[in-house]
Write a protein that binds this DNA or RNA. Structure first.
Lengths: 104, 104
DNA sequence: GCGTGTGGTCATATTAATCTGACTTATTGT
DNA sequence: ACAATAAGTCAGATTAATATGACCACACGC
């Protein structure tokens, strides 16, 4: 892509990047479920029946990379992986709350 | 599209729809410019040089349809059209502010 | 060593968002 | 009458997001 549009990529609005990160098709729902406790790949697939593996996988990776979710490997009996809200993730909850307030 | 996915369309998270509306490529920047006063189609094209007519047009229409911008036809000398934040639009500003706060 | 559960990846479609360039309609200036 | 400005629309191309189905690796129970 010949490094074109190098200017178009720089953030105009600081909120833009975060907004885009949060706006994925299942991100809001993942956050919602994560507020009730740690979530797992398979539990999300169950709880969001219209979602697919790929999308859940991408969403979890993006949210983790941006520090909103924390990934934990649980070595207990059925060894598995849990994702929970990081401190930054918890902060984001207030944004969702505010958005909900603007609707009703 | 044979009315399929009627279940997939129903909102899971109430914030989801609003989040998606706000996450368009230039929406945040449009809001930012609109806080400084009424904006116009042509002024947005100038002030967001990387944007194109179509995208600005679609963004303005969507934001107006969802009641975040108010469209005014100004009959003064160079007859033109202005878009300004509606009361609901002003409320949304606080969401952007909060998002910005989560970054720094 | 075989099947099951968990947590994915990969290549490939399909769908949605954005871009491009040509065109339009109405108003105004000369 | 002619050109310019303002605010778009439209068809078609490109790019990004999401979906589908096949596949993979590891741990565990049997």
């Amino acid at each position: 892509m010949t490094t074109r549009n190098s200017t178009a990529n720089q953030e105009t609005c600081p909120a833009q990047a975060l907004l885009k990160l949060l706006s994925g098709k299942y991100k809001a729902e993942i956050f919602r479920l994560a507020t009730a406790g740690p979530v797992r790949f398979s539990s999300l697939l169950r709880d969001i029946p219209e979602a697919n593996r790929q999308s859940i996988s991408v969403a979890l990776r993006e949210l983790e990379e941006h520090g909103l979710l924390k990934k934990d490997i649980i070595k207990n009996k059925p060894l598995h992986i849990e994702y929970q809200l990081s401190p930054r993730g918890v902060e984001v909850i207030s944004v969702f709350k505010q958005l909900e307030g603007l609707i009703g």
